[in-house]
Each structure stands twice: as C-alpha cells, then as structure tokens.
Design a protein around this nucleic acid. Structure first.
Lengths: 203, 203
DNA sequence: TGTCAAGAAACGAACGTTCGTTTTATGGTT
DNA sequence: AACCATAAAACGAACGTTCGTTTCTTGACA
C-alpha cells in the first residue's frame, strides 16, 4: 500500500500507540516486548519501526496520554458554575480516578510513569508537564474560592494547590495497592479536616 | 569459607541487598543487571545466587526496606508527648521525605515499588503491608487528636487517616518529578485548609 | 510500471541463570 | 601441635533465551 494519505499514517501511529498502551496496562511497560506490541497491533516489526524508531519512543508517546482524560475532567470541574465546594470537587475527582484506574484504565500506568521519570530525563519532561498542568488547575480553582470569599484574600493559592494536588496520587496509590479507599470516604476525610467555610457555599 | 558463622551469612545477605539497592537507586530496578549487582557487591554470580535464587527475590528483599526508616520516624512523631499539632506533624514528615528521597535515598524507589505491585502479586503483598502500617499510624495519631478534643468524638479516624496518608505519596511524587515543593510550603497549604481547632494545641 | 508501506526473517547483544571447578575455613585424628 | 579429609563458599565462564532492532523481500496502488 504505497502513497497513502496523511491521515492513514496518523491512524497507524495511533493504532500502534493504543496497542502498546493495552499491553503496558496488561503486563507492565518493562514486561511488554516489542513482539507483544506487534501482535496486539496486528502489524509486523518493520511496519511498527517505520513509525517509531525505538521502544522508548512508543513509551513516551503513551506517557503523555496517561492523565489526559483526568485533566480534561478536572478542568471542567474547576470551572463549573456555580462554584463547587471543595469536598464535592475532591469526591468527583476521586471517582474519576477510580474510573480511570479500573481494569483497563490508563491511570494504572501512572506509577510506572513516575518511576520512569526518576531515571529518564525525556520522560521526566512529559510527566513534569502533566503534573504542572494538573497543579495549575488546582491553583485556578483555589483562586476562585479565595475570590468568592471562602478563604482569606492572602491565602497562598499555589501552596494550597500543591497540597491538594498531592491528595490525588496518594488516593490512586491506595486504590491500586489496597483498593479499600472510596471517593465517598475521601470526601468524609476531607470534610472532617477542612474549615467549615470551605464546605458551605452559596446555592 | 565453609562452615561460617550464622551472622556472616546474614551479613552477606545484607551486603547483597545493599549493593542491589545502590544499583536500583542509581539506575532503576529494570535497568540494573545481575552483573551490575555482582560488581557492586564485589561478589561472583555464584556467590550471589547462593543467597538469592532469583533477581526478583533480591527486588522483594529491597522493597520491604524502602519505607522502613519513614515508618519508624513517623511512629515516634505520632506518639510524641505532648501531642504535636497536625501541621507540625505533616511538615516534619515531609522533611523526612525530602531527606530520604535525596540523592541516594531509598524513597526514590517508592514509585517503582508501586508500579511493580500493580503487576506482581508477591511484591504487592510487601507494598500493601507498608502502606497499611503507615496508614494505621495516621489512624492512631488521629485518635489521639480526637481523644484530646480537637476533633469531634464521632470523627471517622480511619477515613481521615487514609486522607492524610494520601498527602505523603503526593508530596513525594512532586519532589521527585519537579522538586519545587518544600515541607514548609506543604505546612502552609495544610494550615490554610484545616480547621483552626486542629492547629492550636495546648502548650 | 515505479514506489513505498508492510511482511518476514534474522541479527548481534545482553539478559538471568546454571554448573563444574577452585579456594578456604573447620574439626576429628594423630 | 600438625595434619588432612571434608564440606561449604565463592568463582566465573558459558548456557539458552529473549530482547530490540535491522535488513531484505513482497505486492498493491498511483
């Protein structure tokens, strides 16, 4: 099949990335061989290597998609009108984490992405971008809370954003390792800890 | 050296585990070959395989030591007399995380441990045990806060414990990936969020 | 008919592991 | 006290396998 359309090429790329992700989630990144990816994609070695010049490149292409859905969902949540109370935001975010970390969810790759980032500068760049994006969404949401008067005007929204962001990886880890932490339980935990002013918002 | 003392054997085991950990932290678990471990330990292949029957066994032996120091430190902190306020506990815990996740710190292996646990049931057992132990320390600390009257008597200490535990992996991930989150900043984040009653404890 | 995506086979390298051999400390026998 | 037989510890070359990757071939469409 020579001289194929530009979109065909793009579709092939995605086909390979998706196949690789399925393998990575099922077996783990390092336990997945290129042969596994060839089989899952229904392509030959030559075909795959036409689009990616190494396994690492396929990994990188996947890493950047791990938290894509997560971020999109959170972005909506943080800009919801009317402003959602903190415990509601956290619970819905946690529910999304549960959803995306289930059987074939991409979030199952998150710990592997973090681990790879520690030793691979290239991947670290992608992971850092993702973390930064999610944190900034937290910061934006906190700014709204401050602006609405539910937190003091001099609140360090960046520090608070980083702090609340931290809850999400921690929730994910507990889900993956023990599976005994529900979004509703997290909401109760947050409610028990936080200022009443943050939980009671105007109708 | 035949017929050597029991403690010599134990020391050899630790020598191998320590050498492996140094390699794992430096290069990553999967990028570390057995040859790397042989060289680091100053032993031959045969010697190492006398004490561990596979690379996986060496990995497992390391995993269980990743959060050992962390837990010991937190245990002291949670039982300190007089009772420490929440933000103080969190800041000190975060400071310990910074310490143990530096250059050659064992916490650099934590994400790899989580990732391995997702696909390896044996390792999952070790990681689950560690997570459970740390969470229970949080629960114990929260119980003290409730008992001292700084949280309502009907507080769900388990839910709150899980919630606060979640902050630690999240802090670690941000340290490892971006390195722009300090214990003092986390403390400010927590202070801005939590009930005043939890922060003002008796002298 | 020429071009190029895709297939198939095979490559060298590196992996974890094994195993036959060598070294060395020990304890019973002089 | 000196010796040696013994068993355990350590060695390290080599194993078979599997990895990621490359090369050469094929065949369908422009």
């Amino acid at each position: 099949m020579p001289r194929v359309s530009e979109e065909h090429l793009e579709r092939r790329r995605r086909q390979i990335v998706d196949a690789a992700r399925a393998c990575f989630i099922r077996k783990g990144v390092h336990a997945t061989s290129m042969q596994d990816i060839f089989a899952e994609a229904g392509l030959s070695a030559g075909a795959v290597y036409r689009y990616f010049k190494s396994k690492n490149e396929i990994i990188e292409a996947n890493i950047s998609t791990v938290v894509g859905d997560m971020h999109a969902f959170f972005d909506e949540l943080s800009h919801a009108d009317p402003l959602l109370p903190l415990d509601e935001v956290i619970e819905q975010l946690a529910a999304k984490v549960v959803d995306l970390s289930g059987e074939n969810g991409p979030l199952r790759l998150a710990p592997e992405a973090w681990a790879l980032a520690v030793h691979d500068p290239e991947i670290a760049t992608y992971v850092a971008a993702n973390v930064t994006a999610l944190r900034e969404t937290w910061t934006a949401y906190m700014s709204r809370l401050v602006q609405a008067g539910f937190l003091p005007a001099d609140t360090d929204v960046v520090a608070v954003g980083k702090t609340l962001f931290a809850v999400v990886p921690g929730f994910l880890v507990q889900r993956l390792v023990l599976g005994d932490f529900s979004p509703e339980e997290l909401r109760r935990g947050v409610r028990a800890l936080t200022r009443e002013s943050m939980l009671t918002l105007p109708t």
